[in-house]
Design a protein around this nucleic acid. Structure first.
Length: 266
DNA sequence: GGTCGCCTGGTA
DNA sequence: TACCAGGCGACC
């Protein structure tokens, strides 16, 4: 469940479980995690490290260790954290597990095993290649105008480019375009100031709604149910547009499904 | 820019 | 049985 709002909610739970704890042992349970999707050696070597703080940037999760090392986690398509007691059975799709000094275990649950875990040495400042967050003041109409000015292609795929805006994914990009009444096929470079202002307002509203308010708030603790956000277009092909009752259409852009209203997203 | 592959599961 | 999947890096 991994776009910005879902990752933020995961980070809040991860932070509550990890900060101040010592990692006792790291277990890697999937072959692809031991090979390409993680630095197996460096992960295992986290044993003994103390967690200083946990942050989110875009869809990345940053676990800062007290010794300066950095554990970077990315959920990709469908990862999540699960927190258990050591006596509990491992979740069905646990791919990696962090055993902690308080008898709890943080499990990376990821049925498709596409998640990535990386460890960086102290002092490293990995470039995540991310643009501003949706709530960043630097993200304004002028920024979008110049980001899209020389861009080829449609606005929808451009919104998935993390270098432009960090954290948007396939669902909330579609939701934002619907809310702003913009066609996903409109060339990004064709959008004028008025359209981009509407798009920016829509993005912020959609993200705000999905996170239940300001998304730096740390009100979600434990397994507070991140209830399914109501979606207006995503996965609603053939169902009536909530504004104009026209059936929602589905097209494919850059290999991803795009849902939109062919009538009111001119 | 678009397409493919990574992986595996859920669903029609 | 086939298709689809909330991401992204490698490739053309």
């Amino acid at each position: 469940m991994p776009e910005l709002p879902e990752v933020e909610s995961a980070v809040v739970r991860l932070r509550a479980a990890l900060v101040g704890r010592t990692i006792v042992r790291v277990e890697l349970l999937h072959p692809s995690l031991r090979k390409v999707r993680a630095d197996a050696r460096r992960l295992v070597a986290l044993a003994g490290a103390v967690v200083a703080r946990v942050e989110r940037r875009g869809k990345h999760q940053l676990v800062h260790l007290a010794d300066g090392r950095l554990l970077l986690a990315h959920f990709r398509m469908n990862g999540d954290w699960s927190i258990e007691r050591a006596a509990d059975p491992a979740p069905r799709f646990a791919r990696a597990r962090l055993w902690l000094d308080d008898d709890t275990i943080v499990s990376l649950v990821d049925s498709r095993a596409l998640c990535t875990l990386r460890v960086h040495d102290a002092g490293a400042h990995p470039d995540l290649g991310l643009g501003p967050e949706p709530d960043d003041e630097a993200l304004d109409v002028d920024y979008l105008l110049s980001a899209f000015a020389r861009r080829r292609g449609a606005i929808k795929p451009a919104l998935l480019d993390q270098r432009v805006i960090a954290g948007l994914g396939n669902i909330y990009a579609a939701e934002s375009l619907w809310r702003a009444r913009l066609s996903p096929e409109a060339p990004a470079a064709s959008l004028d100031r008025r359209a981009l202002a509407a798009l920016l307002r829509a993005i912020r509203a959609v993200i705000r709604r999905a996170t239940g308010g300001r998304y730096r708030a740390s009100t979600v603790v434990g397994d507070a149910p991140a209830r399914e956000p109501r979606l207006d277009v995503y996965d609603r092909e053939g169902q009536p547009c909530r504004r104009c009752r026209t059936p929602i259409a589905r097209i494919v852009q850059a290999g991803r499904s795009t849902y939109y209203c062919p009538a009111c997203q001119a």
